[in-house]
Nucleic acid binder design. Structure first.
Lengths: 359, 359
DNA sequence: ATCGCGTGATTAAACGATTAATCAGCCGAT
DNA sequence: ATCGGCTGATTAATCGTTTAATCACGCGAT
């Protein structure tokens, strides 16, 4: 739009020098005397000069904008990611253009193309199963899981799973049901794998995948957790806080109190985790750190890039590619019924007398 | 970045015409013969020509990018908004640059400045109490509430409140507790006002504001809903699904079954509403419609704008500024206990015997 | 005294598109 | 036969910045 502020030439005219000198002084590139540079910087600041991105972009081929590609913006994790990426990017002087693909792969390809057509300098992609990241014409940072080939940086989902599992184990749980959405997701597999890896001899785990179940019983169907409790499961380790929420409410509805009769844990520390009753014990990603690393790697690749190169197709790499998750202990997980007399939860809630029969 | 595709001049050279003719043909502005125009369009398509935004922006002063300003990206409503705006904007050929202000007003001002400095053509702002929208140098669309001065388009929050209330009234509720976060929010006030307006003579409503309560009792504290039930309240009309979730789990935890002993309703139809047990009865905004109207109004203002004008400070206006909300009836609201024998819920859950004493 | 060199600045071209101004034909009317 | 007007295309300027090339100048060395 019509820029209100002064242009480069205005500063130049004010000081009686050429525009080139001003540009050099501000970028610190050419040969400018120290005092001249200082004077220029001063008047630029005074006049509130802001360089035109358009002019610069045209000349340098750099727009100072990166694209954020989410496979499914409806994922409640999105706010965390968007916020973290936006912060990291703007700290590095970059803007963030979003692209949504509403879960659809072909839409996603188009969305990426739109970003490329807008001359983004780089892309941050949080892929979902099926995402193609080939032959985009710019550097790409991928945030998925450490175990995914081509991953730039991600949370240590496996380690997070281990932390959750260790916590449940220490509380005394021996039969644990893992609840996930779809086994085709790398993230979900790593999380559940981490959980399973902790429970060895003498323990039992099984996994319930929601998506296939819903395909058979309809969206939002019951998971049949009351039966699982009857089968002796005392803990439900959910791969996401959304599943945890679903499990928790279903158990409560069936008269199975949490955490007294059954424990529930989640992942991601989503917005509702701290405010529901009981507050959710979960494992949180350090999104700020992950975003910082991803953006830093991307920015590095962008600045090192030859403006007119062939471009190797692989995603950029970072020194650190695995960021630890943090266990957040709240009230939804406690000792299983057998241990109840010796251990106690942190909550100060009124005990609830168990009610109805299991379906 | 280094654009891979062909430039305008390349197409011109290929056809042996001038770049200006190509530009005219593609934009349909100058005088070009029909057959020439057709030939140009054909080769442009064939070569996969994509105009350089930078070049165009420099010349026209239009970047084709709008900024999306959210006061608090962590709000779970954000995905819906972002998705809708992104869709509407990209359908109109615009990109969406996001700006987060993490709830802080001064951060928000800086974020808006960053967008302006990036030469966005316009801004979509979803304000929160305290947001200043003065003297930005570009058209602005505001999405708040129809009752807010300067609002461009918004959901009919008051009407949504009425729908929720009518539903509860029809079910037989006479004592309803409204649960909101902060009375200073226009949106929350409209919603609660709409609810109250339905319950006249012979009914009782009261309002519980969470924020002041948390200031006294700490974040994530109990809301004391069991006591409210004891006081005779049979329905809890929450201003947001997040509060509804909080209320629902607190009630369940206290052994008060929903919807048999108490009904709970929400607002916004957030991601978890359909999958929790019982599924949440709520009122949904038509974000797609709202976003479409907001973006259309913004785009109109942008294209009508004199590139070098003084710019009047007021937000853009749209023909339709109030979009109806939709009641989504699920299982969390049913007839109050007294009516239970004559009415029944849609859920096929096992009845739960009420347990523990109220705190 | 001249050459070479380093310093600090200027000139000018370039990025890719848009657009006002111009121009070459051509046809019909005076 | 000449002029005016219309059509379809070209020229050239412009947006704001960057940067390679150039230039003026003073200073030490040959």
């Amino acid at each position: 739009m019509a820029r209100s502020g002064p242009k480069l030439t205005r500063i130049a005219r004010t000081l009686g020098v050429s525009a080139a000198t001003v540009s050099n002084a501000l970028s610190g590139k050419g040969r400018v005397s120290a005092e001249m540079a200082e004077k220029i910087r001063a008047t630029a600041a005074e006049l509130g000069y802001v360089p035109s991105q358009a002019g610069r972009a045209l000349r340098t081929g750099r727009t100072g904008v990166i694209g954020l590609v989410l496979p499914d913006i409806a994922n409640p994790l999105f706010p965390q990611i968007a916020q973290a990426i936006e912060l990291a990017a703007s700290s590095s002087g970059y803007g963030v253009l979003i692209a949504d693909s509403r879960g659809d792969v072909s839409t996603q390809t188009k969305a990426i193309e739109r970003l490329i057509d807008r001359d983004v300098d780089g892309l941050v992609i949080v892929p979902r199963r099926g995402t193609r990241i080939a032959d985009v014409g710019c550097p790409v940072a991928v945030i998925d899981t450490p175990s995914t080939p081509g991953n730039t940086v991600a949370a240590d989902h496996w380690g997070g799973g281990r932390q959750i599992a260790e916590h449940l184990k220490a509380l005394g749980h021996r039969r644990v049901l893992i609840i996930g959405n779809n086994p085709a997701s790398n993230v979900q597999n790593d999380r559940s794998g981490g959980i399973r890896s902790v429970f060895g001899e003498g323990y039992h785990t099984d996994t319930l995948w929601i998506e296939p179940l819903e395909k058979a019983s309809g969206k939002g169907c019951l998971l049949g957790l009351a039966e699982k409790v009857a089968e002796g499961y005392t803990a439900f380790a959910c791969i996401s806080d959304l599943h945890a929420l679903r499990a928790l409410t279903e158990l409560q509805r069936a008269g199975i109190t949490v955490p007294e009769k059954a424990s529930v844990t989640g992942f991601d520390d989503l917005i509702w985790a701290p405010v529901i009753t009981p507050a959710l014990t979960t494992a949180r990603m350090d999104m700020t750190e992950i975003a910082a690393i991803a953006v830093a790697a991307l920015v590095k690749a962008i600045s090192e890039r030859d403006p007119s190169d062939p471009l190797i197709g692989a995603p950029v790499t970072a020194e650190t590619s695995k960021v630890p998750m943090h266990l957040v202990v709240r009230q939804s997980a406690a000792a299983p019924p057998a241990f109840q007399s010796v251990q106690t939860t942190a909550t100060a809630v009124t005990p609830v007398i168990e009610g109805g029969p299991q379906p």
